[in-house]
Design a protein around this nucleic acid. Structure first.
Lengths: 339, 339
DNA sequence: ACGAGCATCTGGAACGTTCCAGATCGCGGT
DNA sequence: ACCGCGATCTGGAACGTTCCAGATGCTCGT
């Protein structure tokens, strides 16, 4: 080999199982067995094979392996977008759980509107994954159903309705909303506004929880929901509400709550003195917000772990559907401190 | 088929190219050609093949395809952690660029310390990807070098030194730091503190840029760097500096800057009245911070696009190394408004 | 009427694995 | 000396694709 024919970066052919076999003087089959710790391989031979494999830097080709087995040991995670920190935190939880289960995780995410979700899921399905986790309130039943014909699917969060053949893990959105309203009511607030922009299932559930809780606290008449366009301004609707004496907000999530804080900031409204704010998700946004956000915490670590567990159970053959609902709890911070 | 043997979710065997061939009454080869739009396929036959494929829901098996070709049309992105929003924003940029290039992207990320980065990269390499993008200041040359023997690698951000065989895209950290210092100096600040916690290349470059700029503005004697432990508290070092008359901070990144804002918030220090703060990255954190952060913007969209471009060039056969450095610019917000 | 030349199509081999059905070997028991 | 049997190993087929070298059949010019 002369200097000039030194190949470009990804250099010489990757060694295959045959290279190992030849160099070790055995058959490819035996190498395969040895590498997978099959008991029926002689101790001395096994050792030699492993040594040779090590020497020439052999690593099994996962593609070929997956082609032959019907199992890829890989999980996909599909989500609409990475720009709500809560989502990336859930992804982290899933990955951690998957790792301890010996599975590796691939991520696919779209832009912020649900538009690309289907394409993302399709892309994951094309990879022959063993299962996929969908984290997106944009997922619709038909889409999930279609996906479930090609892989096991579990949904983190809430879809419109339970979909046959698809497991789900969720937090109890109604209960979470009740926690928020209860906390604000305990502080003495009566005019509690709900801010949302979502017409998707989780948002609707939280809204329902809000409405029920308001009634339960005898505040039914003050029930008021500010629904804005996605990315739409809070002005002037929020200003109107405040002018009418609303002095507390329960927001659909931390992003929405942060937007309320923005409004307060820009209009010189004191939080929590003039306006108390409670968010949902307890994401990094809540910790970073000023004032720090009181927020409903979703047990994301447990949810991620449960999702992976459900997937492995499915892979293992479970066929009955499972829908777990975990309990949220409230994390109290500056934007709505204890009474 | 009776009701009882209805299979579990991922139901019947996935159709293969042979199924299409049989049903269309042609050979598998012709199906292969037709699906890939080969010109040498009769119009009528092509149409029939496509229709049949559609009918039975055939989708090529990417695994098998990749096994046969030496090309997977997939890119990997490895990064240390997703919890700095700036990172997820760069990932978004890479994905966008990859998508328009017809490549799909897989993500692998570790925990926040660089520890797992090597494992992540290995996991990606095992997937036979065409190339991988590394976004992490933890990447060390040896690790990158090793990876580059198995796939094309491009680094977004700065590694210790240019690594042979590896392209890189970066922003000019020194220039960015100079922008920040220049802006603060123009506001009349003289005692400008640099807050950092990083001993990795990008952090060091920004620090160097800070020191040089201080000298250039005749503020050399006031140069002062507060280096804290990762996640360590800013107290009491920051308090000391403020007591000594420091009234401006240039932080290594937005996370660090947010921590400075935290300190100010908790100690009742007015920003920018008593303390001006400039961050780096112009991430979501800067927009969400209160007061909103003035920050050095890295051209992440361009950087992501360039990285993908470099990878496709490498795949196409380029062998000379390329190291691009893009210019940052300053985004002025409330934490350090214009003079 | 016939071969050339083109358009269209086909069968096998290959990619790197795993699995299955055996082959081979050595050894103890009769 | 021979059989049986476990321990150890092997060759071929299969997974679903692409590519190559050719086969087939049609049209056209002479």
């Amino acid at each position: 080999m002369t200097a000039s024919d030194r190949p470009a970066a990804p250099a010489r052919r990757r060694p295959t199982i045959l290279d190992v076999a030849e160099r070790a003087g055995v058959s490819k089959s035996l190498v395969s067995l040895a590498l997978r710790d099959d008991p029926g391989v002689g101790a001395r031979t096994r050792e030699r094979i492993l040594r040779v494999a090590e020497e020439i830097g052999y690593r099994p080709d996962v593609l070929a392996r997956a082609l032959r087995e019907r199992r890829t040991m890989r999980l996909g995670v599909a989500l609409t977008s990475l720009d709500n920190p809560y989502h990336t935190e859930v992804v982290g939880a899933v990955e951690e759980a998957a790792e301890t289960a010996g599975l590796s995780v691939l991520l696919a995410h779209g832009n912020r509107t649900g538009g690309q979700l289907k394409e993302r899921i399709d892309a994951l399905l094309d990879l022959n994954l063993d299962g996929i986790v969908v984290i997106s309130s944009w997922a619709d039943p038909a889409m999930l159903q279609a996906a479930s014909r090609r892989a096991h699917v579990v949904m983190i969060g809430r879809s419109l309705e339970p979909v046959e053949g698809i497991d789900s893990v969720n937090n109890d959105d109604e209960a979470g909303a009740a926690l928020a309203v209860g906390h604000l009511a305990a502080r003495g607030h009566t005019r509690i506004l709900h801010v949302t922009s979502s017409v998707r299932p989780a948002g609707l559930a939280r809204r329902r929880g809000y409405e029920d809780a308001m009634r339960a606290h005898g505040l039914g008449p003050h029930t008021r929901v500010l629904t804005r366009e996605r990315d739409g301004s809070l002005d002037p609707a929020l200003g109107d509400a405040l002018a009418e004496g609303y002095d507390a907000v329960f927001a659909r999530n931390d992003v929405e709550a942060s937007d309320v804080l923005d409004h307060a900031w820009d209009h010189g409204i004191g939080v929590p003195a003039q306006l108390a704010v409670v968010g949902y998700d307890d994401s990094m946004l809540a910790r970073r917000a000023r004032p720090r956000l009181t927020s409903v915490h979703q047990p994301r670590t447990a949810m991620g772990a449960r999702a992976v567990e459900m997937l492995t159970e499915r892979i293992g053959g479970r066929t009955e559907d499972r829908h777990d609902v975990l309990s949220p709890h409230l994390v109290v911070r500056e934007s709505a401190p204890d009474a």
